[in-house]
Design a binder for these strands. Structure first.
Length: 148
DNA sequence: GCCAACGTTGGC
DNA sequence: GCCAACGTTGGC
């Protein structure tokens, strides 16, 4: 799951009560559907820093809730406000994410250098999704390299 | 700031 | 339902 560290970094997430971060602001249907349909409480999450000086995996987290409506879509003052959505028929859902630990940075060039990660969706050309699935094989490859 | 790639919008 | 125009993402 991508986060801009200027918005919420792994340090920010770990500093939050319980390490809990409601994943607000996703406004892409595919990314929403991953949260709505594919995630289960306890699933592992790679916390990825994007749109920053050194993009890459910066920490680990886990899914900490079932999906529920993103409250920012109903808030006219929020930059994530969606006037076409309503509490009766919410368009955007989110899950809570619990940050568990900071890791060494596994920077994007390192990720690209690993043959085992060649098929990772986040590395695919033109990928713009802020949430993408990770296979068990890819997860193991990454964990092996960032755990001391 | 550039720009490739992709998603969304809206006229028809 | 097509598709051109436009907006957004995100690495560089």
């Amino acid at each position: 799951m991508k986060s801009e560290p200027d918005e919420v970094s792994i340090d920010d997430a770990l500093a939050a009560p319980g390490g809990l971060v409601p994943w607000v602001g996703v406004r892409n249907y595919q990314a929403r559907n991953f949260m709505r349909d594919a995630m289960r409480i306890g699933d592992g999450v790679l916390f990825y820093h994007s749109s920053c000086a050194e993009p890459g995996i910066a920490g680990l987290a886990e899914v900490a809730s079932t999906p529920y409506p993103d409250p920012t879509q109903f808030d006219p003052a929020s930059k994530y406000h969606d006037p076409k959505s309503s509490p009766e028929n919410p368009r955007w859902l989110l899950v809570d994410v619990r940050a568990t630990r900071k890791t060494r940075l596994m920077a994007l060039p390192e990720m690209r250098s690993l043959p085992d990660l060649a098929e990772m969706q986040i590395l695919k050309r033109g990928n713009r999704l802020s949430i993408t699935p990770v296979s068990a094989f890819e997860w193991r490859c990454i964990i092996d390299r960032i755990s001391k």
